[in-house]
């Protein structure tokens, strides 16, 4: 099969260096620090506004998730089919469980 034989040439082998990994971990550490700071609402009073708090936390979570999956799990360098398969599971899970929680009036009380 042509795709099979062409593989080793087209394969992208530029993995990040160790130093890159440390930098990513540094970013992750900073993001986590911000996350934890939201806990101290009395210091950072704007986090008392719920939508600001929730948005901040969700954005940070997604970015952390994304960084680990893309960089540490090498989805960035690997074949797209791996990202697709993982995205499929993730999207499916998000979809069915959001709908379930919705059916339980989890988000809006009727």
């Amino acid at each position: 099969m042509s795709e099979a034989t062409a593989v080793s040439e087209t394969h992208d082998d530029h993995h990040p260096s160790d130093w890159d990994y440390v930098k990513i971990a540094g970013i992750l550490a900073v993001l986590t620090t911000i996350e934890v700071l939201t806990y101290f609402e009395s210091v950072f009073t704007f986090f008392e506004t719920r939508w600001i708090l929730l948005t901040t936390l969700f954005v940070l979570m997604v970015v952390k998730f994304w960084l680990v999956a893309r960089m540490f799990m090498h989805l960035k360098q690997d074949k797209p089919i791996l990202s697709q398969s993982f995205a499929a599971g993730l999207a499916l899970a998000t979809g069915v469980y959001l709908v379930t929680l919705f059916a339980f009036d989890f988000f809006f009380s009727a």
């Binding site: 499916l92 979809g95 069915v96 059916a103 009036d105 009727a110």
Partner: peptide, 15 residues
Amino acid sequence: GWGVWAHHMFVSGIG
């Protein structure tokens, strides 16, 4: 097939 499961629950009071 992933989007229809609650048709088994029409009378369960799902709203």
